[in-house]
Design a protein around this nucleic acid. Structure first.
Lengths: 147, 147
DNA sequence: ATTGCTTCCGTAGTGAGGTACGGGTCTAAG
DNA sequence: CTTAGACCCGTACCTCACTACGGAAGCAAT
């Protein structure tokens, strides 16, 4: 499968990195990966640097960076911009924490509603539906503007 | 602004509920709200039921339900389907909890990376970048498939 | 009556991150 | 030599929840 010196076609590269061929081409269009020169009339080949780039992208994505942000990270890759990189990381960390606390709010509300529904009740009304009709946040926490 | 008996135009309805006119029309197209009959040659009017429906939709959305799921919830609104409603709520609760734990994993990883970058280091390399190159999850937790 | 804001209605575009298609070319296996 | 399977490339399409556009018609105030 892998040729000597790990020279790969786009298909092999994609499979090795666990993404689709179309995804690699999409990253190229987005400017996140370069397209290797096409040798006379033929098929481009990719090396381990391309694979490393794909790993970088997927790792960054896993951390919640958008493709635009990843593009920015890639310009800092020489290691001489650690401060900028850390700054981006801190911003992302903040946004991740915000998302977590938002979801935790939702979790508390939803949990309470489901509990109420599970507890026996008169059968003529549904506490979950009642809360949805009245506005959920009133039923579970103090008043916040919806969204 | 509100006419007697709270009869509203679509604009007033939308503003009262805190959404855009286009959003109301979009919900109508999606079948989440009905379009009132149009009186001879003119302008539809909306009552408090329409407003309640909008509140229901926004409250459900806040809990993480998609518009399709909200459509399903609306069919259970008579209160006689509490079990089905609770089931949907439990599914959503499960998915919310999955999202939270995923984000917490990310938070731990990102936090560790940012910490490493903040601590003084040789200045010739950036721990954050190094981790992105190597695959983040190795650096912070046991090995998982990226995404 | 004229201005100016709404409403009505269908259709089309947005953003994020891809995925699919189709027609052509290349390469490796038999 | 033929054929199956990659590759190349541009373009279109997908989901989700809206948001915008454009022209016609209504309604409220001046």
């Amino acid at each position: 499968m892998l040729k000597k010196r790990n020279v790969m076609t786009i298909g092999t590269l994609a499979k090795t990195a666990g993404v689709g061929v179309e995804t690699v081409r999409y990253y190229q269009r987005r400017g996140l990966m370069s397209e290797p020169e096409k040798p006379y009339g033929g098929i481009r080949h990719y090396d381990e640097q391309a694979l490393a780039r794909l790993h970088f992208i997927r790792a960054s994505q896993w951390l919640g960076f958008s493709l635009d942000e990843i593009g920015e990270l890639l310009t800092l890759q020489d290691g001489a911009h650690c401060d900028e990189a850390r700054e981006l990381g801190e911003q992302k960390l903040t946004s991740v924490r915000r998302k977590i606390s938002h979801l935790q709010q939702i979790e508390r509300a939803l949990n309470e509603l489901v509990q109420k529904c599970s507890a026996g009740h008169g059968d003529v009304y549904c506490p979950l539906m009642a809360s949805l009709n009245d506005g959920v946040e009133d039923a579970t926490t103090d008043k916040h503007k919806v969204c």
